[in-house]
């Protein structure tokens, strides 16, 4: 009984901010600032969403179409975020699976030092890298482009992705590779037809981590973009204006931005659970 109570309390502790933030998106400005706050009772409105996405949800409420746009028009930003997160995840996974397989199975000079090198790239705080990156991007012409942001996110994700995938590959018995080798398979065939399908769960788990990282990354998008694209974490800060903070709009964007990430995780969830437990279950 006590345990149940504690469990519920912990869940409540984590869920309440989400609930409060989610409901804020459906409150009008006055209700947001009520004291005491209207936690459970308020008159829901979709106005915040209409403003943020420049659309009219008139079928919810009889009202004229809002003039779409202004500072708060965020629909393209949501699209930017999706492109960047998917692009960098795909790129990370392609490079990381190949690198991880090599690290797991092949012998080459410096293989053991490799893990140290890979990790060392993550030891610096991103801010320390951001300024040099700004100048590099400016000169190379990657500034303010999808490719630039996808690249930097992939680069940031690679170390973790490679190490994670390497551990998944390490869990697959080498005998299987050797058996396939004798069966006449090339390394590439072994990778594509045998090892990769076996590590599906691990790949999914890694993809989720990469996706979430890119989805929430702030500092590089802030420094390496100007007007061409912006992702949700960065544009969220634009709701803080000289005339006040648009809490309702910010919450609306946040709620909308959760949906794609949620959807992505839902899609790979089946693989994910297996991936996270892979290795503990040896056949």
């Amino acid at each position: 009984m006590m345990r149940m109570l504690v469990a519920y309390m912990v869940v409540a502790l984590f869920m309440f901010p989400l609930y409060y933030w989610g409901t804020t998106a459906f409150k009008n400005a006055k209700e947001i600032f009520n004291t005491p706050p209207n936690v459970w009772t308020f008159s829901p409105t979709v106005r915040n969403f209409e403003e943020v996405f420049g659309i009219s949800l008139g079928f919810f409420r009889q009202q004229e179409v809002l003039p779409g746009g202004g500072n708060f028009y965020m629909a393209p930003r949501l699209w930017d975020t999706i492109v960047v997160a998917l692009g960098s995840t795909v790129l990370s996974i392609i490079v990381a699976t190949l690198a991880a397989y090599g690290l797991s199975r092949m012998n080459f000079r410096g293989r053991h030092a490799f893990v140290g090198w890979v990790l060392s790239t993550r030891m610096m705080p991103p801010v320390a890298v951001a300024i040099p990156m700004f100048f590099i991007y400016k000169n190379v012409g990657l500034m303010d482009s999808y490719l630039g942001i996808i690249l930097i996110h992939a680069v940031m994700n690679l170390p973790l992705a490679v190490l994670l995938l390497k551990s998944f590959f390490d869990d697959i018995p080498k005998d299987i590779d050797e058996c396939a080798l004798i069966d006449g398979a090339t390394r590439w065939t072994i990778f594509r037809r045998i090892v990769l399908p076996m590590a599906k769960g691990g790949v999914a788990a890694t993809a989720v981590l990469c996706f979430i990282f890119s989805w929430t990354e702030f500092i590089f998008v802030l420094t390496l973009t100007q007007t061409g694209l912006k992702t949700v974490p960065v544009v969220s800060s634009s709701f803080v204006t000289s005339t006040g903070t648009a809490w309702g709009n910010m919450a609306a964007l946040g709620v909308a931005a959760t949906a794609p990430a949620f959807l992505f995780i839902l899609l790979v969830q089946k693989q994910l659970v297996r991936g996270l437990t892979l290795g503990s279950l040896k056949e």
Partner: peptide, 19 residues
């Protein structure tokens, strides 16, 4: 190379392809 030796091997843990 192993694939050109025209041999077949059965491993202790069978090394079947699980997928």
């Amino acid at each position: 190379h192993p694939r050109d030796r025209n041999i077949a091997m059965v491993f202790q843990n069978y090394a079947l392809y699980p997928t």
